[in-house]
Design a binder for these strands. Structure first.
Lengths: 339, 339
DNA sequence: CCATTTGCTGAAAACGATTGCAAAGTGGCA
DNA sequence: TGCCACTTTGCAATCGTTTTCAGCAAATGG
């Protein structure tokens, strides 16, 4: 293992004290411009890079940010992570991602592991908006930098990045109504998840606007996977209820339902129109292609990361944390063959 | 920010020296059993967890492992990462993942960033088997722990996890031949990638075994995305060549081709059978469902992680690194509707 | 020309843990 | 009781940085 160049080596080379070298490197103002340049040059030429552990032990900052996500199956999460990494790596910050597998207990374990790792801040998408709130509020009270996206904790004032779930659901359902559909079914997402509730609200209000009845047997509470979509379709077909459209919580459920409908020779979109919020990248590869509401995933990640950087910067400058901010991004509507 | 409990706090509480506490915590033998237990109990009760930075600065080990991957679009990579994280988090090791976006230069940047971060080891899937070899061999020469999977560097003796690309490609192509297909087309992957070459070899040898000609106009060199699949199909159709089957480097190209064929009213599988190596989770949602060779992704990740742990353990014990080992895992064959 | 400020630098003490070495404690045996 | 060997503990140095404090020289002001 090659010896790493340290600040001492530079100091020895230039016959300066380590303090002076440190000052040059950290951008301290108490140093002559000429000296700083000499140091900088030698540092570069010797291939110096600071030992992050040493910096950490002095400053308390690890230069690491944790990302805790409920799953990593979907394109949604993967793209958000990409946006986060894009911004944070550029800032020289390490990113550690942990998957909670939709399990609040696992999520709590992840939080604890992040604490042990001494991350400087967290970007979080919760499993359930109702769990682990005590830990989160404890951290908030300690001014620990955190940003939430997608699924946000109930009742806490936090910095968060969202999309306009309600408005876009409303829009999509309205679109199906205007296309002549009268019996629109909704596949709900998990009911302890913020965006699930918002999407259902948009659906409901769109029906109300056009005086369509909210039919109980068209409300399917299921999971969020492809197989849940299949099951939901089964249930719907078995119930004998009349329906000519489906608005699903997410793409996967929509795709599952589409498959099952085809197997039962129900034609999409002729007999049943389908649309959903997008989570994976299935919409364009299934047949027929699926109409979706598409959140700007990578941009959500970038935004969350920037908000976190703001908090970290404030903390580093000894200033108080910026007030919690809610940023709502625009989801895109993609009308495809399924409606 | 709540004060973190340190070894000193424990020492003060027990009126012991920090050295004794340290010895108790690290499992040193020079300590009375009773003392160790007292320390352990108080440590637990005070909620102590060691400051990783302090350990790092003494021992030189960061407890962080880097994972450098060529992309994070596909299910393939995501599942490998899951396997890696599963094993390493359990061992209390941080995992930092960096995406090279299929760009060898970006990959080199990632390597450098990993060096700056002082990761203890790397798990790597290269962009191209021919790039950045000088850096890799430098690290190998320094006994830096590394494990490769999937795409492996040409000409270097390294620890690696692979699947039986050749055998399974052979098998799948043979299967199509036995089903009566005589003009089987191959969509190649990138030619500087190890598994691409192996899959092509399996295809070629299967043809040879049944004395089928290797037809030049059935060899399509394209990329690896859905759109490349669409383009490949276009090219094939435009060429006017006769073909009744396609064996694609990956799922995405197969799906793209399937879509395009359907648009041109070519029936799958009646007129053209399709199969591919699996990379995403599209196989079961497209219509018709796609026959695939399915690498045990999560298991590949787990295996790679364990091999790296072995190397780290050896290093920690002052032993020489274990000799490079190649582990070949079995890919699963999933016959579905497309053939 | 003296007093005070300003600009730059070095010495040294941290940060939290590990570890070689010395010192203290324990017990055995003559 | 005295000596030796062994176990157990404490002291202090160390890892690579940052930062406080003090010191010195030059510059400024009166």
């Amino acid at each position: 293992m090659m010896k790493r160049i340290t600040i001492k080596d530079i100091a020895a080379q230039l016959r300066l004290s380590v303090s002076t070298v440190s000052r040059a490197l950290t951008g301290d103002k108490n140093i002559r411009e000429a000296t700083r340049n000499r140091v900088l040059e030698v540092a570069k030429q010797m291939g110096y890079s600071p030992n992050p552990a040493a910096t950490t032990i002095r400053t308390g900052r690890t230069g690491t940010v944790g990302v805790v996500i409920p799953e990593m199956r979907t394109d949604y999460t993967v793209k958000v992570i990409r946006g986060i990494q894009e911004v944070l790596y550029q800032a020289g910050i390490k990113v550690v991602v942990m998957d909670s597998f939709e399990d609040p207990e696992m999520e709590m374990e992840n939080f604890r592991m992040m604490e042990r790792f001494m991350v400087d801040g967290l970007i979080i998408c919760q499993c359930s908006c109702r769990h682990n709130l005590d830990w989160l509020s404890k951290m908030l009270a300690q001014d620990f930098p955190m940003v939430f996206y997608g699924r946000i904790p109930y009742g806490l004032k936090v910095s968060q990045v969202l999309v306009d779930d309600y408005a876009k659901s409303f829009f999509m359902v309205e679109k199906m109504i205007l296309a002549g559909r009268r019996h629109i079914c909704h596949f709900y997402g998990p009911d302890d998840v913020h965006n699930s509730v918002e999407r259902a609200r948009g659906y409901r209000d769109a029906l109300a606007k056009y005086n369509l009845p909210y039919e109980d047997n068209l409300q399917i509470h299921s999971g969020m996977l492809i197989d849940d979509g299949r099951r939901a379709a089964d249930k719907l077909l078995a119930s004998g209820a009349e329906f000519d459209a489906i608005f699903a919580f997410n793409e996967e459920m929509a795709v599952g339902a589409m498959q099952r409908l085809r197997e039962r020779d129900v034609r999409v979109p002729e007999e049943v129109a389908i649309s959903a919020f997008s989570g994976s990248s299935l919409a364009e590869v299934v047949y027929p292609t699926l109409s979706t509401v598409d959140p700007p995933k990578t941009d959500m990640g970038r935004t969350a990361a920037r908000m976190l950087l703001d908090q970290l910067a404030a903390l580093a400058a000894g200033e108080p944390l910026p007030a919690p901010r809610t940023v709502i991004l625009n989801a895109e509507i993609n009308v495809r063959d399924s409606i």
